[in-house]
Amino acid sequence: MAFDPDNYGLRLFVRYLVLCLIALIFIFPLVFMINSSFKPDNQLLADTSSLRAFLPVGDISLDNYFGAFRRAPVALFVLNSVLVTGATVLLSLLICSLAAFSFAFLRWKGRDVVLSIVIATLIIPFETIAIPLLLLVSKLPWIGLEGLQWGWLNTYRVQIIPWIADGLTIFLFVQYFKGLPGELIEAGRVEGASWWQVYYRIVMPLSGPVLATAAILKFLVMYNQYLWPLIVVQQENYRPIMVGLGYFFQLNVAWGEVMAYLTLITVPVLIFYLFLQRAFIASIASTGVKG
């Protein structure tokens, strides 16, 4: 090595240099995306041959954003995604935690069998059941304001309901509940609480960390949905953001507008992530604790 290995300052400098270079690798596509979203198409394409690609220089404007809004009902897509994501996350927290509560604290006939089925579904990749699921939801009944209908295609519910319950979320809740001090639950029972009261007065208020984990994991899955809405939603009215991207790839691609749209749908998540990065990282780490 060319430098004195005992020189503390130099070693520190090299460490930080390595860390920063790696950071560049992870960050450059995003920097490129954000900067490009302000540039007209011809400049955007020309800039890729130099470092200008990563700098907000030249003919900077918000035109691409206006263009994107003109080309596609962006607000509608965002609204759809927010609605679908929000509803799924909330319902999932409620329904999965209830089921997990039952698995963790209650004794009932068939519990162990049901729990093993739930855990076994962990190894079924969604992609392998997408097509049969499509056939299934296209024939399911629904009772709405207009009476009985058949088929769930082109709705919000088809994007929400199949995603509410999943093995991983239930598993995470069960693990967490089993780690709670059992005497708290017993104290609640002796004091006269029903199981439902134990659930919402004692267990739920103590489940902040696992609720955050489950919410974040579900949020990432739902906000980034692609394959499923692609095949079950043909009507614009119900399209989420990722599928909305299709509008920007007809005939000749307006790259500036694409970048504006990508920035628009990505940056809120990034900000959300930066604020809650500890919780995000902890939630991923906790999925690794299984096994």
Binding site: P181, E183, L184, G188, V190, A193, Q197, L206
Partner: peptide, 26 residues
């Protein structure tokens, strides 16, 4: 019956008042 546990088992998310009143609230 009422029971006092070895680990106390008082509810960490409630104040002392709420803890004492828990049975009555229920």
């Amino acid at each position: 019956v009422a029971m006092v546990f070895q680990s106390y088992a008082i509810f960490p998310h409630m104040t002392v008042r709420e803890n004492i009143a828990f049975g009555l609230t229920i």
